[in-house]
């Protein structure tokens, strides 16, 4: 299967999961997604541990849903809410269907492959570039976070359970955002300096995307 086909199939599956209303329909789709994951795992010789880890990560959010949604507050305290249970069940099924399909169809593709496939399916070039830049700069933001943290530690900051720690953590978040905004400005200028404006309207060709995907610090 080609990359655009895989992407299309994953999108169709996720759309189906979002539209189906009956529990039995969702369960059937989940079964299909489960089989797809197993087939993909066997074909790609992925280890069971790798698969389980991915599925566990996927379900962290689902746990949160189950902790909050099935309960409602009555005068006397917490009570079990059948409508909430059904909603939580549907959310769990839908997110697992979408997640499993992504694991089965898209795992092994990197951000460039996904963006290139999306561009071939008609996604606007700007969005494809945005996707690539997001992936590229998430790592940079992580680096910024580490630098800020190091610089704070170097000057003796140690997180404790007090008001000042909260203040400093808030400062840390603000600093990362400010750094990110300033960098975004510089990156935009660097891209314009290299003639980005002329090709914003051009259809996404693989060469354009490669240029963005491999762009270094000065992009």
């Amino acid at each position: 299967m080609t990359a655009p086909q895989r992407l299309l199939l994953a999108l169709a599956g996720a759309l189906g999961a979002a539209l189906l209303q009956q529990t039995w329909q969702l369960l059937a789709l989940l079964l299909v997604a489960g089989v797809a994951v197993l087939v993909a795992a066997v074909l790609r010789l992925a280890s069971v541990r790798w698969l389980l880890r991915r599925i566990a990560l996927l379900n962290l959010f689902v746990v949160l849903v189950w902790l909050t949604l099935p309960w409602h507050w009555t005068g006397g305290g917490l009570a079990w809410n059948p409508a909430g249970v059904e909603a939580a069940l549907h959310i769990s099924l839908r997110s697992n269907i979408a997640g499993l399909l992504c694991i089965a169809l898209l795992a092994g593709m990197n951000a460039f492959d996904v963006a290139a496939a999306a561009a071939r399916l008609g996604m606007p070039a700007r969005l494809a570039q945005l996707l690539l830049l997001t992936v590229r700069y998430l790592g940079v933001m992580q680096q910024t976070r580490q630098q800020v943290q190091r610089a704070m530690q170097a000057r003796g900051f140690r997180p404790r359970c007090n008001w000042r720690t909260l203040e400093v953590l808030a400062l840390q978040v603000a600093l990362i955002l400010v750094h990110a905004l300033l960098r975004a400005e510089r990156v935009a200028q660097a891209m314009q300096a290299r003639g980005l404006a002329q090709r914003v309207r051009a259809p996404a060709r693989k060469a354009d995307l490669v240029g963005v995907a491999t762009g270094q610090e000065s992009l």
């Binding site: 630098q147 800020v148 610089a151 704070m152 000057r155 400062l171």
Partner: peptide
Amino acid sequence: LFQDPVDQLF
């Protein structure tokens, strides 16, 4: 003293 003072100024 960090290489880039911007890293160090909070």
